[in-house]
């Protein structure tokens, strides 16, 4: 399946990335080459084989429902570009 400019723009939009025209061309080519490489797998006959989502032979690991101390708030907000009222401050979401 060829990757088009449109695909790249769509993915960039979902990832909130603003790309320049040069970058769009660059990534279209790179993504195309990556996909063609992986495409090689389609040559294998996988009829009757369960999809392998997990490769480790392990199942469910649980923890008990016990609370543990959370981070101090200053630390939780430590990386935030902006904070106010103990909250992360972000550009307004709803128009």
């Amino acid at each position: 399946m060829p990757i088009t400019k449109k695909d790249v723009l769509h993915v960039a939009d979902l990832a909130r990335l603003a790309l320049t025209d040069t970058e769009i061309d660059l990534y279209t080519g790179q993504l195309q080459r990556i996909l063609s490489y992986v495409e090689k797998l389609s040559e294998l006959d996988t009829k009757g084989i369960e999809p392998t989502t997990y490769t480790v032979p392990l199942m469910t690991v649980f923890r008990e429902d016990e609370t543990r101390p959370s981070l101090p708030r200053e630390e939780a907000l430590g990386n935030a570009p902006e904070e106010e009222k103990g909250c992360f401050k972000v550009p307004k979401i709803i128009e």
Binding site: E84, C87, F88, K92
Partner: peptide, 13 residues
């Protein structure tokens, strides 16, 4: 969502 004049352009998480 900010409502006052100062934070009308912000949301708080």
């Amino acid at each position: 969502h900010g409502e006052g004049p100062e934070d009308a352009n912000y949301s708080f998480v």
